[in-house]
Design a protein around this nucleic acid. Structure first.
Length: 816
RNA sequence: GCCGGGGUGGCGGAACUGGUAGACGCGCCGGACUCAAAAUCCGGUUCUGGAAACAGAGUGAGAGUUCGAUUCUCUCUCCCGGCACCA
């Protein structure tokens, strides 16, 4: 008599086997085909949440499936350990961020082990450890020397009450989240990495990444935003510095009726000096977020500065305005306004009574009313002096030539992508390895003095970085001249750590170099899985770093991630699970109650990975019930003792049918997991086969052998999803070799052969009958049989058959 | 506002290349077992009409292409992700 399914024991046994056999620890082996299978590593926020369980389970299924395909699989795990929540916890609970983080890591590691993921734990990475971050300090210094790192002013959110810099997330409706004070824009010097130097390569690479979803590639392409256009200058009356602007529509140049500059622009500041209204307006502009979403949705406001720019061709005067939607740090801090042919400019001109001039007419000669709406199409130039009558191409060509000849403009390539600001005014991050000396300016910390270690024992107040109160950290001798100097107290954006961790997993123990020859064996990552919310920033920064590391000679490939799978969120009651809503479901409780396999199964069954997953407690019950049924079916079969060898020639039709179902299912699941990543349909197919086995009532020797084949297939194919149960069931089926060392089952093409198939018959596209036809019947025979069907005849009747469409093997459509 | 994705039974979802809409599971209804309940097993379950056979309607809304549209095109609408300092 078989024993009842007890996940607690079953899972403990499997875990112990994996641990003692160390079967997931891998070393480089040139004779084996490697498969590097990675998820985006978690931020150690406390406990695992459902989103973690989902992404890790998806990746674990792929890793275990690939292992069964014979690949040498590396699946590592680590911790994206620097970040803001640790600082918040420190303020709330008076625990240093380091202590909080390490304790969370210990808890979450234990949870991951309980879930049975096939990780090589010998490669674990923790980014807040100096042995990790020292190498990104080294890289920063190296890039500094190469000129790929520079310092410039950039905007931050300043909380005037808490006297601290806020993250965008901490600004709620323009106010500080703790102080409720109106947040101000403030410019401070910050460090930047020149990602724009790689803009073209990052863009072109997207064309050679078939393993990435189109949606992600399109988003990145739009983000980089390469455009070609004319860069030109407007002289400003009584000023030495011209206003430089970029336009992709030089053909509309004669339609410029105003210029707009940012509040921080020198022209605006100058005008504010002797005009109180302008000064007030500029102050108001600065009390506004810098986020693109804000700029694009706010009410567009502006004020004339009382100065004029000179149109570079006509010489006419156009007024210069200051506007709240122009930012100094993006581009040149100035834009030209062409209200006749740009939607936003049109709105702005309408509102402020600025003239709207039509300079483009429709190509078909029709009339338009420029006062009613902007005309955005390309057309023929009018009101454009010598350029009247030219079409778009000719006009762009002629106007560009005019500027290039006069030296006041040139055809250039422009990117929406901006350089990556990596400075953060926070404590819990990698110290930026820079020393400021009064004589030598910013000096990188010499490589032999790295790492600059972040002190972990700190008092945390929440008012700025504790590093600023630590003279022992700040005061240092200038590496160049030896004079007293001061350390940078800013730390890196945490995206810096996550931009190269995937490479460090290949050699996490190397104390002499960032990366070594092991990177060449494992990279690139074959399968990368993570949230769609990282489609742009993280994935673009990682691609950038990969190219930088390549140019440093540390790796020899162009792209970090060959195949990308972006999984959807886990929802509850149609919305995001969040602590604020109080609708979180703790995976631990479910693991304790049902076991890890039930949780894994539900996660994979409830939705395809790319879609949002709606959480359902009842669905978890269903998964548990299925596992019990699965367990009992295999157990009851095994109770009948060993089975005989299958004699394929002597099968009955029913036996043949079950066998066909077995091999159809192998084909289906192999495709679902291997190609489509639709684990939900793979599990559904396994359930179907198991249902067929349960309906199959044949205790003969051959019957039991057919069942045995089906059950072996199901156990093997479900083992990536529910590995603990399948580890046990494989031995129940009489095998000495552990299932973790088994290969994926193979399809017997002979078993799939059938001689009669069912065809659907439609009349005028509506389903009216089904017929059985020989597999090799020709189209004429099939349509004749379809027409003969009694129900089909009812609808065809005396009507004339106009057309008959036969889709071989599928359907017949009779058009009357 | 801009970029990307999504909307299918009471619920999660399936339908892969334009060809049977609703696989599989949940829930619900009925039955078996039980003194009873739980668990388990069997059957039914898109809606409307019908005892049934079957018929009509039906994939966010509206139009279009097609012999045939959940699938392709256009317009609209609602929801989700991203917008450079949440990770």
């Amino acid at each position: 008599m078989s024993i009842a399914y007890d996940p607690e024991t079953v899972e403990k046994n499997a875990r112990e086997y994996w641990e003692t056999s160390r079967c997931f620890e891998v070393v480089e082996d040139k004779n084996k085909e490697k498969f590097y299978c990675l998820t985006m590593f978690p931020y150690p926020s406390g406990k695992l949440h459902m989103g973690h369980v989902r992404v890790f389970t998806i990746n674990d299924v792929i890793a275990r499936y690939q292992r069964m395909q014979g690949r040498h699989v590396l699946q590592p795990m680590g911790w994206d350990a620097f970040g803001m929540p640790a600082e918040n916890a420190a303020i709330q609970r008076s625990v240093p961020p380091a202590q909080w983080t390490y304790s969370n890591i210990d808890d979450m590691r234990a949870q991951l082990k309980r879930l049975g993921y096939a990780y090589d734990w010998t490669r674990e990475i923790t980014t807040c450890r100096p042995e990790y971050y020292r190498w990104e300090q080294w890289l920063f210094v190296t890039l500094f020397k190469k000129g790929l790192v520079y310092r410039k002013n950039a905007i931050v959110n300043w909380d005037p009450v808490d006297q601290t810099v806020l993250a965008n997330e901490q600004v709620i409706d323009g106010r500080g989240w703790r102080s409720d004070a109106l947040v101000e824009r403030r410019e401070i010097p910050q460090w930047f990495m020149k990602i724009t130097a790689y803009a073209d390569e990052l863009l072109d690479g997207l064309d050679h990444m078939p393993g990435w979803p189109d949606s992600v590639k399109i988003m990145q392409r739009n983000w980089i935003g390469r455009s070609e256009g004319l860069e030109l200058s407007f002289e400003v009356q009584d000023e030495d510095e011209p206003l430089t602007v970029f336009t992709t529509r030089p053909d509309t140049l004669f339609g410029v009726t105003y210029m707009a500059v940012a509040a921080e622009h020198p022209l605006a500041e100058k005008a504010a000096a002797d005009n109180a209204d302008i000064a007030t307006f500029i102050e108001a502009c600065k009390k506004m977020g810098a986020a693109e979403a804000t700029l694009e949705t706010i009410e567009k406001k502006g004020m004339p500065l009382g100065i004029s720019a000179l149109h570079p061709i006509s010489g006419e005067q156009v007024p210069v305005w200051v506007a709240n939607f122009v930012l100094m740090s993006y581009g040149t801090g100035a834009v030209m306004g062409v209200p006749g042919h740009d939607e936003r400019d049109w709105q702005f001109a309408k509102k402020h009574g600025l003239p709207i001039v039509q300079v483009i007419a429709p190509s078909d000669g029709s009339d338009i009313e420029i006062d009613a709406a902007a005309f955005l199409d390309k057309g023929v130039l009018i009101n454009s002096g010598d350029f009247n009558g030219l079409d778009f191409d000719a006009a762009v060509d002629a106007i560009t030539k005019f500027f290039e000849a006069s030296g006041r403009g040139s055809w250039t390539i422009n990117y929406r992508l901006r350089d990556w600001g990596v400075s953060r005014q926070r404590y819990w991050g990698t110290p930026i390895p820079i020393i400021y000396c009064d004589d030598c300016d910013a000096v990188p910390v010499p490589v032999d003095q790295l790492p600059v270690v972040l002190p972990e024992e700190v008092e945390f107040t929440g008012h700025g970085s504790p590093l600023k109160d630590m003279p022992e950290f700040i005061n240092v001798a200038c590496p160049q001249c030896g004079k007293d100097a001061k350390r940078e107290t800013d730390t890196f954006d945490t995206f810096v750590e996550s931009s190269w961790y995937y490479a460090r997993y290949t050699g996490p123990d190397n104390e002499q170099a960032m990366l070594d020859e092991r990177a060449a064996y494992w990279l690139p990552v074959d399968q990368y899985t993570g949230g769609i919310e990282h489609a742009i920033l993280h994935l673009l920064y990682a691609r950038f770093f990969h190219k930088v590391l390549r140019d440093e000679g540390l790796i020899d490939t162009n792209e970090p991630f060959t195949n990308l799978l972006t999984q959807g969120m886990v929802l509850k009651d149609g919305g995001k699970m969040s602590k604020a809503k109080g609708n979180t479901v703790d995976p631990q409780g479910l693991i304790d109650k049902f076991g890890a396999d039930t949780v894994r199964l539900f996660m994979m069954f409830a939705a395809p990975p790319e879609q949002a997953l709606e959480w359902s407690d009842a669905g978890v019950q269903g998964s548990f019930r299925f596992l019990k049924r699965f367990w009992n079916t295999v157990g009851e079969h095994a109770d009948g003792g060993p089975v005989v060898e299958l004699e394929l020639d002597s099968l009955t039709d029913t036996q043949k049918n079950l066998r066909r179902k077995t091999h159809q299912t192998i084909a289906k699941i192999s495709d679902d997991i291997g190609r489509r990543y639709t684990f939900n349909t793979a599990i559904a197919a396994a359930m179907e086969l198991l249902n067929a086995v349960n309906r199959f009532d044949d205790e003969s020797d051959t019957g039991r052998a057919v069942v045995h084949e089906a059950l072996e297939a199901v156990v093997l194919m479900l083992s990536p999803v529910v590995p603990h149960a399948c580890h046990a069931l494989w031995s129940v089926l009489g095998h000495a070799t552990p299932i973790i060392d088994m290969a994926w089952p193979k399809v017997d093409e002979q078993a799939l052969v059938r001689d009669v198939i069912e065809i659907v018959v439609q009349v005028n596209g509506k389903l009216r009958g089904r017929i059985s036809v020989p597999i090799d019947a020709d189209n004429d025979a099939v349509s004749a049989q379809a027409l003969a069907d009694p129900n089909v005849q009812r609808f065809v009747g005396k009507n004339e058959v106009l057309r008959t469409i036969v889709v071989p093997g599928r359907l017949v459509n009779i058009v009357v």
